[in-house]
């Protein structure tokens, strides 16, 4: 798949979000997209997935089957998890066994008859993941897929990515939490100032999750930063 000089902006007089972005991804390759908030990561991902049209440039040789996992699953829909997955399976012309497979793998069984709007953020995110995998995608695009997922499912996502690439699929994933350290051999794409910097190799960082008293969280984060560490997030 080739990105040939993509230019994107949100309005005729708006500033360019992406400028002349070019890159190539071979079958079986994983790219991790880094960049600060608002840098254009999600815009790039949606253009690659075929959701957003580019003002200039093209995405060539995009695989026919694309799986898209949004940052936040749209839970404001009047369906149960099962009804939603059935609708999506019908649209994707997925085999009848596909729903069962992903329900089991993502531990969604207890929530099948729960309305989407009543699911926890993590469970809704799992439904979002399942719909993208009902048919094995040739291109899997995940926008911050680890948000809201429990540790077990976060680990499973890495395994799913490996399965897709092992079968020759391409995976593009954005991540600001550093979870992609679990993706060896991933190519690192950094979106900065509208441009794309392509670098080889796994980011040389490990992520340690530390639980502290909420009252001390700011102090601990400050001390870690003072020691030269990159504090990715503080969640209370």
């Amino acid at each position: 798949m080739r990105l040939d000089g993509l230019w994107i902006r949100y309005g005729r007089r708006a500033p360019w979000v992406l400028r002349s972005v070019s890159a190539t991804l071979a079958p079986g390759e994983v790219a991790v997209v880094h960049g600060r908030n608002g840098a254009g990561k999600s815009t790039l991902l949606s253009a690659v997935a075929g959701i957003r049209a580019c003002d200039k440039g093209t995405v060539a040789d995009r695989p026919a089957i694309v799986g898209w996992v949004p940052e936040r699953f749209p839970a404001a829909q009047p369906f149960t998890a099962l009804a939603y997955l059935r609708h999506m399976a019908a649209i994707r012309r997925a085999p009848s066994t596909a729903i069962d497979e992903w329900v089991e793998r993502l531990h969604l069984t207890p929530f099948l008859h729960t309305k989407l709007g009543e699911l926890s953020k993590g469970s809704a995110q799992k439904v979002g993941l399942a719909q993208a995998l009902l048919v094995r995608p040739g291109l899997l695009v995940l926008d911050e897929p680890w948000e809201g997922l429990d540790a077990q499912t976060r680990a499973a996502v890495s395994g799913i990515i490996a399965e897709v690439t092992d079968e020759g699929g391409i995976v593009l994933v954005s991540d600001h939490r550093g979870e992609t350290v679990k993706l060896p051999h991933a190519v690192v794409w950094t979106v900065h100032d509208g441009s794309l910097l392509v670098g080889e190799g796994t980011p040389h960082k490990a992520v340690i999750e530390i639980a502290v008293d909420p009252m001390q969280a700011d102090d601990v984060a400050k001390r870690l930063r003072a020691d030269g560490h990159d504090v990715v997030a503080v969640r209370r």
Binding site: S46, A49, G50, I51, A53, A64, I65, V66, G67, W68, P70, R72, F73, P74, A76, Q77, M88, I91, R92, G128, Q131, A132, V141
Partner: peptide
């Protein structure tokens, strides 16, 4: 009625805008 993000999912599921 359809959330914007679901429309995006539908584009990828159907294969074209």
């Amino acid at each position: 009625v359809e959330p914007d993000v679901q429309r995006h999912i539908a584009i990828t599921a159907l294969g074209s805008r």
